[in-house]
């Protein structure tokens, strides 16, 4: 917001720095921000007052969630596992798709611009669509079920992994690339012996990271009918069985935490 006062080193006539810079610059950003906030508040009728009155209602809802309905646990186990399955397959297939795209997008691999530019554009387009939107679309196309959810995650993970990996490839040490070109390696050989050894640990790390994100995402895919635990959550909430919703949320948290922990453990060994 605060425009950095630029040094004006060579202005002998006006004695630079002797007078304070105009103040309007400093305040302009804040005034714009406040104006935007007021406009937003009017548009959505969301006011600080509502914020304060809404929170107690949230509290009473939370109160209804306890004690959780433990007897529901066996019923939700299979859908929970389905959620993990969706995440595993979605992440892996997305990662497979991401490899060629990342290689084609990286500017240091000397791919012709007529290929790399369109590839990057498609990548950027895919990245604008959130996971749940993909899921809603695939459910409409393929019908309700985990397959639609998996496809949604394939596209979603493809966007994340391709972006992160191509940035990692662009950041690799150019030395081995030159060495391989110098010994007369063709492009595939360069990739195999100079790029992959350097980029693979990053790729694996991003894969695991995306898997963590996807387990969370898969847990809510069911809300739009794309399989997994989300469907039961939606149903429990629809029937006002907050004690059941609670046990679903708790189990999800436990699974997410276990996977986060395991994945963080492997990632630390990779990098």
């Amino acid at each position: 917001m605060k425009a950095a006062p630029q040094a004006e080193p060579l202005q002998p006539a006006s004695l630079p720095g002797m007078a304070p810079p105009p103040k309007y610059k400093r305040y302009a950003g804040w005034i714009v921000l406040i104006a935007i906030l007021i406009a937003c508040s009017i548009r959505t009728e969301v006011t600080p007052y509502q914020l304060i009155t809404g929170l107690p209602q949230m509290g009473s809802l939370l109160a209804e969630m306890f004690p959780p309905d433990w007897s529901y646990l066996p019923t939700i186990w299979a859908p929970m596992m389905e959620t993990v399955q969706i995440a595993v397959l979605g992440t892996s297939l997305g990662a497979l798709l991401a490899i060629p795209v990342a290689l084609l997008s990286a500017s240091n691999l000397r791919v012709s611009r007529s290929v790399s530019l369109p590839v990057r554009m498609v990548l950027n387009l895919v990245r604008t669509i959130p996971d749940l939107l993909f899921a809603a679309i695939f459910v409409a196309v393929l019908g309700i079920g985990p397959f639609a959810g998996m496809l949604a995650l394939v596209f979603f993970s493809f966007g994340i992994i391709a972006k992160l990996t191509f940035e990692a490839i662009e950041a690799i040490d150019p030395g081995p690339l030159e060495a391989m070109s110098a010994v007369g390696g063709n492009r595939l050989q360069i990739i195999r012996y100079a790029v992959i050894p350097q980029a693979l640990p990053y790729f694996m790390s991003y894969l695991l990271y995306t898997f963590e994100v996807n387990v969370r995402a898969a847990a809510v895919l069911g809300l739009v009918g794309a399989g997994g635990i989300g469907l039961l959550l939606d149903r429990s909430l629809g029937l006002f069985r907050y004690d059941r919703a609670c046990i679903i949320i708790l189990l999800t948290l436990v699974i997410v935490l276990i996977i986060d922990y395991g994945s963080a453990l492997i990632r630390r060994r990779l990098l």
């Binding site: 596992m81 399955q85 397959l89 393929l142 019908g143 309700i144 397959f147 998996m150």
Partner: peptide, 22 residues
């Protein structure tokens, strides 16, 4: 892990109309 995961996908659940819908 992959074998287990694939068990979870019910491929038969796909609508027959997927082609025309697409």
């Amino acid at each position: 892990v992959y074998w287990w995961s694939i068990q979870g996908m019910h491929f038969e659940g796909i609508q027959g109309t997927a082609g025309t819908v697409s």
